[in-house]
Simulated scan of single mutants.
Amino acid sequence: LRGYLLSLLRLERAKKLQEQKEKEMLEKQQQQQQEMAAAAATNPVLNVAALLASGTQVTPQIAMAAQMAALQAKTLAETGIAVPSYYNPSAVNPMKFAEQEKKRKMLWQGKKEGDKSQTAELWEKLNFGNKDQNVKFRKLMGIKVSLKTLQQQEEMFRNLDVQYEMARSQTHTQRGMGLGFSSSFSRGMDAI
């Protein structure tokens, strides 16, 4: 029990440290993104209008880089998520990358304590006799079944019970009858 409690404390500590690291990384990333956006706006190489005004010849590569920088700055301003520098800016759509990051964060964020789905409430009503068996069953099932599925399962189990009772009654009350057994009538005919 003591080991279990210690491991819980360690897990809680590790979780807090992870959250703190994520918060620090997010702050650093936002700061870098703001610096990149400011640099992109002031950098004469990436600012096509300034290059054209200065009389410098603008190549398609420079124009494309300027467009990508502007798109990344726009994405950063709208979503707060920037494409990391190790990605090729011409190969990654910043808006799609931001959407993916948001989805990833929502996926790994986890549920809050008060959130319960309808299926979880349905499974909680299910009773197997004692609490331990109920909890074990819910864990194994993943608590992802709808009301309709539960009703279908209940009907199927009722049908199985009825069929079992019918088969049981036939085996106990009609013993010695059916294929492989001779009837009393055919025994009488053999004697003649």
Rank of each mutant, 00 (worst) to 15 (best):
Q174T: 08
T119N: 11
Q34I: 06
F185G: 05
L6W: 10
E19G: 04
S90M: 14
A49Y: 06
A65I: 01
R158C: 10
A191C: 11
P60E: 01
S169C: 07
A49R: 08
G80N: 10
L179K: 11
K116N: 07
S183D: 11
S184R: 08
K21D: 05
T171I: 11
W123M: 12
V135H: 10
K74F: 06
N88I: 00
M36E: 12
P94L: 03
L71V: 07
A41H: 13
P84S: 02
E19W: 03
Q118D: 12
D115V: 10
A50G: 02
W123Y: 03
N134H: 01
G142Y: 13
A98Q: 03
G180H: 03
T171L: 14
L17T: 15
E165H: 04
P84Q: 01
E121L: 15
L150T: 02
G176Q: 01
R10K: 11
L150W: 04
N43L: 00
N93H: 09
L6R: 07
L26G: 04
V135N: 12
Y4P: 11
A70I: 04
Q109V: 01
L8T: 06
P89G: 04
A50F: 03
Q34C: 06
Y164M: 11
V162R: 09
K21Q: 08
T119K: 07
T173V: 12
T149D: 14
Q31Y: 03
L9P: 07
K15V: 10
A66Q: 03
S146G: 11
K15E: 15
L51H: 00
S54F: 11
